[in-house]
Design a protein around this nucleic acid. Structure first.
Lengths: 161, 161
DNA sequence: TATTGTTATACTCTATAACTATA
DNA sequence: TATAGTTATAGAGTATAACAATA
């Protein structure tokens, strides 16, 4: 409630990137601005990764598997805040593209250990180069201190303090 | 399998809400933390609005129509950063639930002016009360200054400066 | 020609539930 | 009993392409 008056944003030369309507009460919602910012980065990410056809979530899975070889789907789901079925679908798509492979665990035969394939490692290397440029476009909007403060705030939101 | 026992993460003060894996390079990406924060708020929103069965996006459309009676689907799409077809599907769902209605424009017969129905206005009133509580849970994580800085940063991201 | 709404299509993501095999 | 994977199902969102009516 009562975060800030939305009209403040419509003055001077920096015309809003989202023209047209008065956002009204939406402008007072943290969730609204967070979603708009997320969409902006999501779309830039999608354009940047178009040639590789990788989504944010798919890349996150590949990075996690790269950094935690042998992780299970449950591990990934818990870390990324989704459920088993969603992660199953995600891994299925990556496995179908031969970027990730499942290997049965010897220790616990219910588990499948996930690993990047050779193609997956190559894809990840290409993706990282593209992502650096994508990130830079947004990082450049902030000073070092501003960026640090922003990251701390975002972490607080999803870690619940 | 050398992943890491999830329990290990719950000592010390900054215990992650997403235990388990080492996020590795993801932890350096603004986009990653933005998405995680968005997911956290999205899920809390979904739980909060479960009884009304309204999503973030549906609520955004209803608020915009409430604040801009007679707006067109194109207006909404431009403001929320989606395309015509996506907005069409969104408005169709709300219209099917009798929350929004389309009225042909007299001035421009290509346009349909959007308005909330009586049921839509009642639904919006109930939604606003629920949303206040939902927002408060996250706002309470920050001081006034921290929150202002966060909102400024988020707007900068999606307004491109 | 450009714009608005519309339809069709397809893919991704999300979520729930239920089943299986293991533990 | 609980857990990991799996399958089925459904709804929501996203995006592209094409068409008709209108400007």
């Amino acid at each position: 409630m009562a975060i800030k008056s939305p009209q403040d944003d419509f003055e001077g030369e920096d015309a809003p990137a989202t023209p047209g309507l008065d956002v009204g009460r939406l402008g007072d919602l943290l969730g609204f601005h967070l979603r708009m910012a997320h969409v902006a980065i999501y779309r830039d990410f999608a354009e940047t990764m178009e040639e590789l056809a990788l989504t944010q979530k798919q890349l996150a899975v590949m990075e996690l598997v790269a950094g935690n070889p042998g992780a299970s789907q449950i591990d990934l789901a818990n870390t990324l805040g989704t459920d088993r079925a969603t992660m199953m679908a995600l891994v299925n798509r990556l496995a179908a593209r031969d970027l990730i492979e499942r290997r049965p665990s010897a220790a616990d035969r219910r588990r499948q250990e996930l690993h990047l394939t050779k193609a997956g490692r190559a894809m990840l290397a290409r993706a990282r180069a593209l992502i650096d440029k994508h990130e830079q476009r947004f990082i450049d909007l902030f000073s070092r201190d501003e960026l640090d403060a922003l990251l701390v705030a975002l972490k607080r939101i999803y870690k619940g303090k």
